[in-house]
Design a protein around this nucleic acid. Structure first.
Length: 468
DNA sequence: TTTTGAGTTGTTCGA
DNA sequence: GTCGAACAACTCAAA
């Protein structure tokens, strides 16, 4: 066993706990050199997610420091950065946790090949998902395209136990130079301003773990019954932490597994949806940017335009829709029920291509995840695997009546509708660009299209597609 | 190979 | 106000 240092390339796995790669690396007893690289996958993603990733990196750096280690920061294309770093420190190899989006897969397989050809070790590990995307398959060995059988297969197979955090991380004799995280200015493109979002983010491994514990202690029991009501604090909020790997999915799964009751089961089912999205993205990468069912290419999608712009700005005149979009703008997140409502409104009532909505979510969400975002949009639009039937068109009024009966959620985020608007509703007007010309005193906008009219139009367009 | 049962999250209408 | 049916077949997965 060589005693050369190992470079540990961290990406969306910024934690110590439940970390197969880190646990295996620590067990070698070799010097460990954690590194984070600002490559295209970091610098070219949505504004809110980019900012949030930087916060995760800062927090993880502190955590490593407390262990007597460090997080070395470098910028540039991963392959040359890692090669030169490996030569600089005399590393024996580079290890990392696998990601499953097409960009990462190509980058990482090139890297693995190049490293090996130059005599370095190159090893990748699981840990980002409950199971590897290829570990669950139908009886025919095919990937699943329907959620329920995927869930059954996943449950039957079981999920590997989470690993404890390593006891010690051996430091190298000399630390190589590191860049300054602040100089990367990962929050710079966020015109809504990091200060507005910062109050809503729950950052870092310890905070994520506390969040899980609080959820399991106080909310999981009623999760099934309350999770659809956006004004209640009924959900875990852990998607934000999962996407940067501040907590591991296996840790969450096994924490909920022994709990009795439907709440815990439904919670694990939601976690399995995240895995299903990764399973689909791995086996069908076009999920990210093309209609998963190609026949939808002929649907009469409307492209981006003034109506979509009103949707983005939370000025559709449908309160539940606008509340959701404004919540996302000021908090970096949106309740899942409301995500479906705003997505249905954009793709069905406005007949706008789901990619318009997908891009806006990608720019605004701090919990952005490529697989979940694309699967969700295609599910609502009807073009995706296991998608909603075409006639399932959410009526914003009916949904609001059902899930926000007293209007608490709507008033929280729409200043025009509240007699005495709260901080989040007002924060929206502070956060948006001045060029939008918004004024909390202005009257609430009129609706863009009659709900029955929009519904009929979407149904007719679907009928035309089917006929063709 | 064929058959069979099932399929996240809705809305509307009429009894 | 409540409840069941219609909406539309089709694809998927397993027996």
């Amino acid at each position: 066993m060589p005693d050369t240092p190992l470079i540990l390339w961290f990406r969306r796995d910024l934690r110590l706990d439940d970390h197969p790669m880190l646990a295996a690396a620590a067990a070698t007893g070799r010097p460990l050199l954690p590194v984070f690289i600002a490559d295209r996958s970091v610098t070219e993603i949505g504004a809110a997610a980019r900012w949030r990733w930087g916060e995760a990196v800062a927090s993880f750096g502190e955590r490593l420091k407390a262990q007597g280690s460090r997080l070395i920061l470098r910028r540039g294309a991963a392959l040359p950065v890692l090669l030169s770093l490996a030569e600089e420190v005399g590393a024996g190899g580079v290890w990392w946790t696998r990601l499953y989006d097409p960009f990462s897969r190509e980058r990482d397989s090139d890297l693995k090949e190049t490293l090996k050809s130059k005599g370095f070790e190159a090893r990748s590990f699981p840990g980002h998902t409950l199971v590897e995307p290829w570990e669950v398959a139908t009886g025919q060995g095919e990937p699943y395209k329907v959620y329920t059988p995927f869930w059954k297969a996943l449950s039957a197979r079981g999920v590997a136990d989470p690993l404890p955090p390593p006891k010690t991380l051996r430091a190298p004799g000399d630390w190589p130079g590191s860049e300054d995280l602040a100089a990367w200015r990962l929050g710079a493109a966020m015109n809504r301003g990091a200060p507005v979002l910062a109050g809503h983010a729950v950052i870092g491994e310890e905070a994520a773990r506390k969040r899980l514990e609080l959820f399991l202690k106080t909310r999981v029991e009623s999760y099934r019954d309350k999770r659809d009501f956006p004004a209640l604090e009924a959900v875990s909020g852990l998607s934000e932490n999962l996407t940067y790997g501040e907590i591991g999915p296996r840790r969450i799964w096994h924490a909920a597994l022994p709990l009795q009751g439907e709440g815990a089961t439904h919670f694990r089912k939601e976690l399995a949806w995240r895995d299903f999205a990764h399973h689909l993205m791995y086996h069908f990468p076009h999920l990210l940017d093309a209609n998963w069912r190609p026949e939808w290419d002929d649907f009469a999608w409307k492209s981006d335009g003034p109506q979509a712009e009103r949707w983005r700005r939370g000025l559709t005149g449908e309160p539940i829709v606008d509340a959701g979009l404004r919540q996302m703008y000021v908090t970096g997140t949106m309740h899942n029920r409301v995500r479906m409502i705003v997505a249905s409104y954009l793709t069905k009532h406005l007949m706008t291509h789901w990619k318009v909505g997908l891009d806006w979510f990608a720019d605004c969400l701090t919990d952005w995840d490529p697989a979940s975002n694309a699967m969700g949009w295609q599910w609502v639009a009807g073009s995706g695997p296991d998608a909603a039937p075409y006639f399932r068109i959410f009526n914003p009024e009916t949904q609001a009546e059902k899930f926000d009966e007293k209007g608490v959620y709507r008033k929280t985020f729409i200043a025009e509708l509240a007699r005495d608007p709260g901080p989040e509703a007002l924060a929206y007007f502070q956060a948006v660009p001045r060029s939008w010309g918004l004024d909390p005193e202005a009257p609430y906008p009129r609706r863009m299209i009659g709900l029955a009219e929009g519904r009929e139009r979407a149904l007719a367009a679907y009928a035309a597609l089917k006929k063709a």
